[in-house]
Nucleic acid binder design. Sequence first.
DNA 1: TTTTTTTACGCAATCGTTCCCGATAACGAT
DNA 2: ATCGTTATCGGGAACGATTGCGTAAAAAAA
Lengths: 360, 360
Amino acid sequence: MGIPANRDRSQDALLTPYSLKLFSQVQTVTIKDIAKALNLSTSTVSRALRGSHEINTETKRLVLEYAEKLNYKPNPIALSLKENRSRAIGVIVPEIANNFFSQAINGIEAIAYNRGYHVMIFQSQESYEREVVNVQHMVARKVDGILISLSGYTTDMSHLQEPHNNGMPIVFFDRFSEQIDTHTVIADNFDGAFQATEHLILSGRKRIALLTSLEWLSITQERMAGYKAALKKYNIPLEDSLIRHCGFANEELLENVDRLLALSPAPDAFFTTSDRLALSCLTILKDKKVKIPEELSFVGFTNVKIAHLIDPPLTTVVQPAFEIGQTAAELLFDLIEEKKKNLPFQKVKLATTLEVRNSS
Amino acid sequence: MGIPANRDRSQDALLTPYSLKLFSQVQTVTIKDIAKALNLSTSTVSRALRGSHEINTETKRLVLEYAEKLNYKPNPIALSLKENRSRAIGVIVPEIANNFFSQAINGIEAIAYNRGYHVMIFQSQESYEREVVNVQHMVARKVDGILISLSGYTTDMSHLQEPHNNGMPIVFFDRFSEQIDTHTVIADNFDGAFQATEHLILSGRKRIALLTSLEWLSITQERMAGYKAALKKYNIPLEDSLIRHCGFANEELLENVDRLLALSPAPDAFFTTSDRLALSCLTILKDKKVKIPEELSFVGFTNVKIAHLIDPPLTTVVQPAFEIGQTAAELLFDLIEEKKKNLPFQKVKLATTLEVRNSS
DNA sequence: TTTTTTTACGCAATCGTTCCCGATAACGAT
DNA sequence: ATCGTTATCGGGAACGATTGCGTAAAAAAA
């Protein structure tokens, strides 16, 4: 009986709980508020706020003062919508609970904050699907650029290829893919692995097991190559059964360690090429009462801060994580600000250091 | 002379350098594109996309199909601008390179992703100023809620008080302040410290030094209280000189350790109540060749994953970091979605566990 | 004094989306 | 024949900020 079609909506409005008004939004001062208060147009206020010369000095003063008084802050979302950018960069790492990555993030943030950019951090949790979702979210949120270290299971690159083709600046660090032509920043994985292996050889080890990450990862390939090169230099025959690839499950690692220890002759050294592997592997070996370094030398490839506190103090290849983050961020900003836009893409390689301790 | 007002724009398009098209923006399909292509209005398309009943089934099908084909994704920025929300929550922690916090973040993300929210992670780096900037940025970006563990130097709360008063849902975890009335999730710091101290007492220690964080922090207060309660229970006199507060600089810690060791009689146990303190302190003690646990028992309050690998294996109070993150996130979503809006704010306390190892 | 220039501001479009109103049929009921 | 319903859809105003263009008045040049 004469009930309008939108009855529900008006009722909704009436039924809106008080708390919604109270809780739903943080009111902010807008340029419009300032304009109304000072009897100016929004365009004038806008120009005054950015100090345009075509605004009267007195007017500018009025606007600036009033804006200051009301604590006016420009709405970054409105700006993003208008300008298709966000003054933020996105970072994707497999996990932040990993010293290498958290240090790299610190390096990135150091550079970004200096340049007035914000950093959005995402974890792929070593999941390809999560990585895709994160990339899409970042793109949708109009980040000005992306820094990424690929998840362990990322082989298809179309989620990065598409934004890359459309002009989104992307820089790889640590784990990269050749499929996308852009800047890359990595530790000198080859040399790090070479040094570690050479160190083990020079300390008398001959059957050096290599426990390494998923085979197709760039870091795995490079570290494996360094290992092989060192063996070759010292004429030690390469034995495939000494090389084991591990995913991210602990059982997998346990099985691989078992197989290695079951070899005869058994290996006399373990070189594990990641944070996670090194520590989990050490745990397993200690459980098995393997004496380190007497029965087995042990070298890690990790950035744990407390390698020296471990029993035995852990010999480890350390990556310049902070610097890697810094460099990657700098290269990204070069792309974003199109400084050196005609220069070819670089592959920056930063030196690792071998910290020799008692475990080898 | 009859030049239309929008002449500039068409010229712009012509004058737009190629590189701008190439580099500046990732083009996306909008609702307008779909409307134009299908000869519909944007409102119809919008409604069709969200399955409104007042759109013809056939029209809906057309729109949905076309949107699918062009891979239409709604622009979250436009939505945020319109709806004053972002479907994202913000997290601020002192530092992510800390197992407790990174585990808590994982707990938060687990809950958030289930609910279809994104998580924005920020570090205060134990700096009050950074914390303020981060909070403001999150508020400006219209996060739907904030999870925060306060920086070590945050005493003034106005940066949180203001958004809180304006209805921004905020939940504290780990480090909180009584100044803001909202949900809080913490480990049972009192009980954790009590257990650790009691454990030391029962194993025969009498002069237990407490190395703890900045005095005014909630966690410090609680842990100190637990320590004192345990002493009292066993009638051990409280000695102020055994309690030392440390900031975040290493020299400060070194000085405090020196003073403790110089006491006579010297302490026979160290209880350090944070990740950072425990590990740095252990490093110092090992440098000084202090024998643990013979000369000195040592208990930490940390979430390092490799406490068992340390020499000596570290006795430690472990906080349920992941669960703390989960619980905090759940409470935040309760606030956001106004489920239990009339319930009083809770202070959730989750049990810690004492993992006894050789260092004590 | 007349013309030109400068100064200082407002108008309106735009970014992508939603949603409040209308508008226009078709249809059945009076 | 008139009217109210219902089903479908479009117009246009928001959200907050920027910016090209137009233009009045004031200042400068003629």
